[in-house]
Amino acid sequence: MSDQDREISYAEAVREAIGQAMEADDRVFMLGEDIGVYGGAFGVSGDLFERFGPERVRDTPISELGIVGAAVGAALAGMRPIVEIQFSDFTNQAMDQIVNQAAKIHFMLGGAAEVPMVLRAPLGSGTGAAAQHSQSLEAWFAHVPGLKVVMPATAEDAKGLLLAAIDDPNPVIVLEHKLLYRTSGPVPEEAFRTPLGQTAVRREGADLTIVATGVMVSRALEAAETLARDGVDVSVLDPRTLTPLDIEPILADVSRTGRVLLVQEAPGHVGFTSEIAARIAESPALYRLLAPIRRLSGLDIPIPYAPQLESAAVPQVPDIVEAGLTLIKES
């Protein structure tokens, strides 16, 4: 089996990236709740505690604001902290340090200081954890100048984008989808970097462009297979990083196909795909559209508990297929 064929899970890919970064650079350390002996709420930190010890894989009390602030201070003082927030919903407890401090320090101080930190947090629904453990808040972070926002959709990107985020001299929010942790894919063993700000073309088709983020990328790819059987040839594009946003490949693909479906798990109202829609509408790609831009988003509701309610709250594969077919019919 060559390196290229090696498959590991998304969670293992994150762990491998952190391990390689910590081996290569003494400044890199991790802090978060239950990341030590417990191995992380989603098992991501795993054996890192045994490998690197309690100083560099630092268990913390349940103090999100305190630990994110500690990461900001450590980054200001020359370290490269990686904070794990157990559920991205809990970033709400730490918003002052994320939004008022980390995002703005470089700017406010006129460039005199940098905050090279990574905040990793699982987002999304699908685990029956209900409204306070299932949100998709990526648009909030993307709306704040000074933050970079990353949403890896594959195991390979989970590793490559995280290593790039750790190298970055800015605060980077990495939102990992909790349903993806156990999915596997080919991941190179070496410490490769996937640059922030490069949209990935996951599938190329002639009839319809689907732009999707997070877990919706794999759902869009599955929907594309179904649509192909109906004779609809679909492109699937994954921006991978919301900030910086690489819009050009999206505009080019939309110009080519003339149809675009934007898919996100988060509620549609003022969501990230609203920004993509606006960018398309502001560009010459607008003149190439054969049908209006269409968005498929989570409902504008908190995520409910019951499994049938939870799955009804966010786009599923048949919803994407149906939206795609409707777009074709409209044009």
């Binding site: 604001l65 500690a70 990461a71 900001v72 201070g73 450590a74 003082a77 101080l109 005199a112």
Partner: peptide
């Protein structure tokens, strides 16, 4: 930064976690 002033702060208590983190960095 050259004289060791890591920054004033417009948020009440905003600097307390940051000072703690800087101290953690020195320890590490």
């Amino acid at each position: 930064v050259d004289t060791g002033n890591l920054g004033a702060n417009g948020i009440v208590a905003g600097g307390i976690p940051i000072a703690t983190g800087a101290a953690l960095a020195y320890r590490l």
